[in-house]
């Protein structure tokens, strides 16, 4: 279990993490989602004791990492795919890491096999692709068979096979009762991997809830309706708390009524409908909705939002 209490990190005049509180429970995959520069990596570095909090604290299983008798056996982390000396081979890197905790060579070979690095293990890390670097980072994180696993952007640079592999791995780790804390700025990845989501923006926690709750909590469910009498149907459905928008000539989007209510209204009034599709807000939409005010780096060019003359300067 990871617990952050009033965790704050200030670099110069920039507050990277602003007094956040959260708990990462064991036995489930907790996603840490936020736009670039939101404070995800800083928070993770503070968990690992690499950055000192300006104020507040963060503990793993009750104590800061430096207070653990065998840190590598308690917490494994992938913070940066390139947290390795580029001139050393993957095998020797893991061997040196293992030596600090008397982890047997057998375990080094195990994690190399597990992460699919067997063929390149004797090669210098400097020549590794980003994906191979990620695999090595994951191997290092699992070296001590830790109860808590922290992965910062683990699927960055991985091929599709690797992405699926990480997805299965983290779910499996959580199913064994481990604490799994996973950061990403990819909503789609989180949607299929995480059970619980902590959303951070500009150093503040925006949401901390089960993933389903975050998706359904953002905006009401919408329903797409196709009918050959859109005007008639719009009149029928109109009411308080209901909004009906005409998207195309025969296509309406209804908010505030569930599909059954729409169908009932249509049936009773003999309006034919030929499509009735409940639309669930995607995590992507929920995320955009949550973070729209918290994004550190807004793209200047958004479709239609920027006048043409402002494009160049």
């Amino acid at each position: 279990m990871i617990e952050a209490r009033g965790l704050t990190k200030v670099y110069g005049d920039k507050t990277a993490v602003a007094g956040v509180n959260f708990t990462v429970e064991a036995g489930r995959v907790t996603g840490f989602l936020g736009p670039n520069g939101a404070g995800k990596s800083t928070t993770m570095r503070m968990i690992m004791g690499l950055d000192r909090p300006t104020s507040g604290s963060v503990t793993v299983n009750g104590s800061p990492l430096a207070g653990h008798a065998a840190p590598l056996r308690d917490v494994g982390a992938l913070l940066d795919a390139k947290a390795v000396h580029t001139s050393r081979s993957a095998y020797n890197h893991l061997l040196a890491m293992a030596a600090t905790h008397s982890i047997p060579k057998k375990r080094v070979h195990e994690v190399i096999e597990m992460t699919g690095l067997a063929e390149v293990a004797k090669k210098k890390v400097g020549g590794f692709s980003l994906g191979m670097g990620q695999r090595l980072g994951i191997a290092a994180a699992l070296l001590g068979n830790p109860q808590t696993v922290i992965l910062d952007e683990p699927v960055n640079g991985l091929d599709p096979e690797g992405v699926v592999w990480v997805r299965n791995l983290v779910k499996y780790l959580a199913s064994e009762g481990r604490t799994v804390f996973l950061s990403s700025h990819l909503m789609s990845e989180m949607a299929v991997t995480a059970d619980h989501l902590i959303v951070i923006g500009r150093g503040k926690i925006i949401a901390d809830a089960p993933i389903q709750e975050i998706i359904t909590g953002q905006g009401q469910g919408r329903t797409r309706v196709r009918t050959d009498q859109p005007d008639r149907l719009m009149q029928l459905l109109a009411g308080t708390g209901v909004s009906v928008e005409a998207r195309e000539r025969e296509l309406l989007e209804v908010t505030g009524l569930d599909p059954r209510q729409i169908a009932t209204a249509a049936l009773e009034n003999h309006v034919m409908i030929y499509e009735l599709t409940p639309l669930q807000a995607s995590l992507e939409e929920a995320y955009m909705e949550l973070t729209k005010d918290e994004v550190e780096y807004h793209s200047l060019i958004t479709t239609g939002a920027v006048p043409v003359e402002a494009g160049g300067n």
Binding site: A70, P71, D74, S102, G144, E176
Partner: peptide, 23 residues
């Protein structure tokens, strides 16, 4: 992939006391 070595951490006590030598 199976990340387990000889033992599963689920079998350990949940208080963060690690099994095995430290640095």
């Amino acid at each position: 992939p199976s990340p387990r070595g000889a033992e599963t951490p689920a079998q350990r006590s949940g208080d963060g006391s690690s099994s095995g030598p430290g640095p």
